[in-house]
Design a protein around this nucleic acid. Sequence first.
DNA 1: ATAAATTTTAAATTTTTGTTTAAAACACTT
DNA 2: AAGTGTTTTAAACAAAAATTTAAAATTTAT
Lengths: 211, 211
Amino acid sequence: MKSKQVNGTAVDLGTEAKIKEAAKKVFLKKGYDGTKTRDIADEAGVNLALVNYYFRSKEKLFNEVFDESAFAVARAINSIFDSDLPLEVKIYKLTEQFTELFLGQPDIPLFTVYEANRNADKMYEQVGLKDRTKSGIFEKQLEDEAAKGNIRPITRMHLEIVLVGLLSFPFMSRPVLAVNGIAGKEAFEKFVREHQKIVPEMVMTYLRKLD
Amino acid sequence: MKSKQVNGTAVDLGTEAKIKEAAKKVFLKKGYDGTKTRDIADEAGVNLALVNYYFRSKEKLFNEVFDESAFAVARAINSIFDSDLPLEVKIYKLTEQFTELFLGQPDIPLFTVYEANRNADKMYEQVGLKDRTKSGIFEKQLEDEAAKGNIRPITRMHLEIVLVGLLSFPFMSRPVLAVNGIAGKEAFEKFVREHQKIVPEMVMTYLRKLD
DNA sequence: ATAAATTTTAAATTTTTGTTTAAAACACTT
DNA sequence: AAGTGTTTTAAACAAAAATTTAAAATTTAT
């Protein structure tokens, strides 16, 4: 018997899924180097040996977790940017999506960025190839809008870094916010919502100002 | 004999300083959990036992390194914001200072943010108290300018997160940039300079647009 | 120049940690 | 119910790593 459903909620996920869940939680919080295999087993409430029984090694398990996390972010960006919505809508949509994604899993931004840097080489092979959508839709849109004089000229990469940076940074700054009086889940969420209201407006105001 | 000076450059820093230098380099690159005491000793070209001889423990050494790094960032922010320059000048100045600081030590942003999160509690005690300048100059300036109708109302914390996020994020994104064709030191520096030209203009444009 | 203090070294010790093993418990089929 | 395959467990193992030790080398002070 693999898993069981009791009334609404999935109570027994099955051991493998339970380990994966626990791994996600611990890796996201402590990073690869900071995570002990025993932490994962404990968090899952499961015997230590089962981690390797189901996933062969700490590293293999980590890779699964990282790929999902990085892919969630990449997909959010690409599915929006490479659609055919107006530029302004894309920017507001990305803001909304990231806000919800990160409020649900506040460790994603720092985890993804940190682990991508920890082994930048592996990144290149692993994500680099998988993610090369290369639709070019967004690049073209930016060029067209600039040509029409609707926005300043800007590359996709510059705009992406600006947007993702703005949307991610508050979630990397909780300790700083805490020291400055913005402590606790409620205060933090309030700050984030205010911040994410600023972001698209700031970006659009900048793009629209032609000099 | 503690240290020696040969012609212009300091050649022999003394063992303790050599270890600290090495620790800075390795910790900044690999983080606390990813750093082995042996990495530091090797990098310093020094016997393993000397690390603990001079610094008692890996953790104590790390704390010194972290404090300096975090303090460099905090000082850069506060010395500018709590001066009595016009708002626009402050924003351009912070941009310049951060750009130079981070181009010289590109690991500072991610290191600082990551390690601050790794042990947020300790942060509160350690940095929290030391750094409470609380001059209030900047807050007052923002309120005054908003009251005069020169800028939109915004809190110091919101503006700080926007600015520091924008200025830091490119340095956390090297692997992503590399995958997108911006690889190598020169290309990266070029991208950063373009980016840091956008930042203050974007922030000022936003602040100045009154609706 | 000698003694005391300091610094450095190689090796040992102790913890921590990822992984493996072998047996036990369990589940499923016939 | 016996047999077969799968899952779980406690314990062992081996490698990595932080820290300590005790002696050797070096420096400093007298």
